[in-house]
Measured scan of single mutants.
Amino acid sequence: VTTYKLVINGKTLKGETTTKAVDAETAEKAFKQYANDNGVDGVWTYDDATKTFTVTE
């Protein structure tokens, strides 16, 4: 299990959150659900070296 980070650069929501997941794909699903629940819809990137997803509106 690895800790992944999400950086949110939204129009109305900015911040960070983390999740523990077995792989990046599982973390991405959780983060996309989180973003959707919070009304954030943007461009996604992922940096494997830092295990960090970024979504920018």
Rank of each mutant, 00 (worst) to 15 (best):
K29C: 07
L13E: 07
D41V: 15
V43H: 11
G39A: 07
A27E: 00
A24T: 14
G10T: 15
K51Q: 08
D41K: 13
A49K: 12
F31V: 02
K51H: 11
K11N: 11
T12A: 11
T18M: 10
A35Y: 03
K32Y: 06
Q33A: 12
A27D: 00
Y46L: 02
T12V: 11
K29E: 07
T17Q: 12
T2N: 13
T52W: 02
T18A: 07
A49V: 10
T2M: 10
Y34M: 04
W44R: 00
V43F: 10
T45S: 09
K11S: 11
G42C: 02
A21H: 03
V1S: 11
G39L: 05
E25Q: 13
V43K: 09
V55D: 00
T50E: 08
Y34W: 11
Q33W: 05
T50H: 07
L13F: 15
K14H: 10
A35S: 05
T2G: 08
W44N: 00
T18D: 05
T12R: 09
D23M: 04
T18Y: 13
A21K: 03
T54W: 10
L13S: 09
N38H: 14
T26N: 09
A49L: 13
T26G: 06
T19W: 07
T17K: 09
K51N: 08
K5P: 01
N38C: 09
Q33C: 06
Y4W: 08
T54A: 04
N9I: 15
T52Y: 03
T3K: 09
N36E: 12
T18C: 10
K5V: 10
G10N: 06
G10A: 12
V7T: 05
A49D: 12
A49I: 11
V1C: 14
T19V: 15
V7L: 09
A21M: 03
L13Q: 08
N38P: 01
A27R: 00
A27N: 00
D47N: 09
F53D: 00
A35P: 01
V55T: 03
T18Q: 11
Q33G: 06
K11P: 08
K20S: 15
E28L: 15
A30G: 05
F53N: 00
G42Q: 02
T52H: 02
T45A: 09
V22Q: 11
K51I: 02
T18P: 02
E25C: 10
A21D: 03
A30L: 14
D47L: 04
A49Y: 12
N9Q: 15
D37V: 11
Y4P: 01
E28P: 00
T18W: 09
G39I: 04
V55K: 00
D23N: 11
W44A: 01
T54S: 06
N36V: 15
A30E: 12
N9K: 11
K14W: 09
G15E: 08
Y34D: 02
T50W: 04
F31Q: 00
D23Q: 04
T12Y: 15
T54L: 06
T54E: 05
V22H: 13
G15D: 09
T45C: 08
T12D: 10
L6M: 05
V7F: 07
Q33Y: 05
D37P: 01
T26Y: 06
V7C: 06
F31K: 00
T19H: 11
K11W: 09
N36W: 14
D37F: 11
E25M: 13
V55N: 01
D47V: 05
T19S: 05
I8A: 03
D23V: 03
V55G: 00
T45L: 07
E16D: 05
T54R: 05
T26C: 07
Y4F: 10
G10Y: 06
N36P: 01
F31S: 00
E25Y: 11
G10V: 11
D48Y: 07
G15V: 15
Y34H: 05
K5H: 14
V40H: 04
A24Y: 15
L6W: 02
D48Q: 10
N36A: 15
T52M: 04
D23A: 04
A27L: 01
K51D: 03
T56W: 08
V22L: 11
G42S: 02
N36I: 15
L6N: 01
Y46F: 06
F31T: 00
T54N: 05
Y4D: 01
G15A: 14
D23K: 04
T12L: 13
A21R: 03
W44E: 00
A24D: 05
A27K: 00
T45N: 08
L13C: 13
V40L: 11
V22R: 09
A24E: 07
I8V: 09
N38D: 03
A30N: 10
G42D: 01
E16S: 12
Y46W: 04
T3V: 12
V43G: 04
K51G: 04
V1L: 14
E16C: 10
V43I: 10
K51Y: 10
I8F: 06
L6D: 01
A49H: 09
K51R: 11
G42I: 01
A24M: 13
V55P: 00
G42E: 01
A30F: 15
T2K: 11
A35L: 10
Y46M: 02
Y34L: 05
D41H: 14
E16Q: 12
N38S: 08
K14S: 10
T3P: 04
E16V: 13
T17V: 13
T52K: 03
N38Y: 13
T54Y: 13
T50G: 04
E57A: 07
T50M: 07
V55C: 06
E57I: 10
A30S: 10
K20G: 08
K5D: 02
D48H: 11
T19C: 12
V40K: 02
D47P: 00
D47W: 04
K5M: 08
N36G: 09
V40A: 04
E16F: 12
T50Q: 06
A30Y: 15
G15Y: 15
K11I: 11
E57F: 08
D41G: 10
E28Y: 15
K20N: 15
D37C: 08
L6T: 01
T56G: 04
T3G: 04
E25D: 11
K14C: 09
D23R: 05
T56P: 01
V55Y: 02
I8D: 01
D23Y: 04
K20H: 14
N36H: 15
D47Y: 04
V40Y: 08
K5I: 13
G10L: 15
W44S: 00
A27W: 01
V1W: 12
A21E: 04
T17M: 14
V1H: 12
D37G: 05
T50C: 04
K14L: 08
T56S: 08
L6S: 01
D48T: 09
N38T: 07
E57S: 09
D48G: 09
A30K: 12
E25T: 12
E16Y: 12
T52G: 02
E57M: 09
D47H: 07
V43T: 10
Y34N: 02
E25N: 11
V1Y: 13
A27F: 00
D37S: 10
T45Y: 08
G15L: 14
G10S: 12
V40T: 03
W44K: 00
G15C: 12
L6C: 07
A24R: 15
Y46N: 00
K32V: 07
V7K: 08
K32L: 08
K29I: 10
A49P: 06
A21N: 03
N9W: 13
T19D: 03
T50F: 04
E25A: 14
F53T: 00
N9L: 13
N38A: 14
K11D: 08
G39K: 09
V7G: 02
E16H: 14
V7Q: 06
V43N: 07
T56F: 07
A35M: 08
A27Q: 01
G10C: 10
D47I: 05
V40Q: 03
K32T: 04
D23H: 05
A21L: 03
T56E: 09
F31I: 02
I8E: 01
E25V: 12
V55F: 03
A30R: 08
D47T: 05
K5E: 03
L13N: 06
V40P: 02
W44L: 03
L6P: 00
K20C: 13
V22I: 13
A30D: 08
Q33P: 02
K11Y: 10
T45D: 09
T3M: 11
T17E: 05
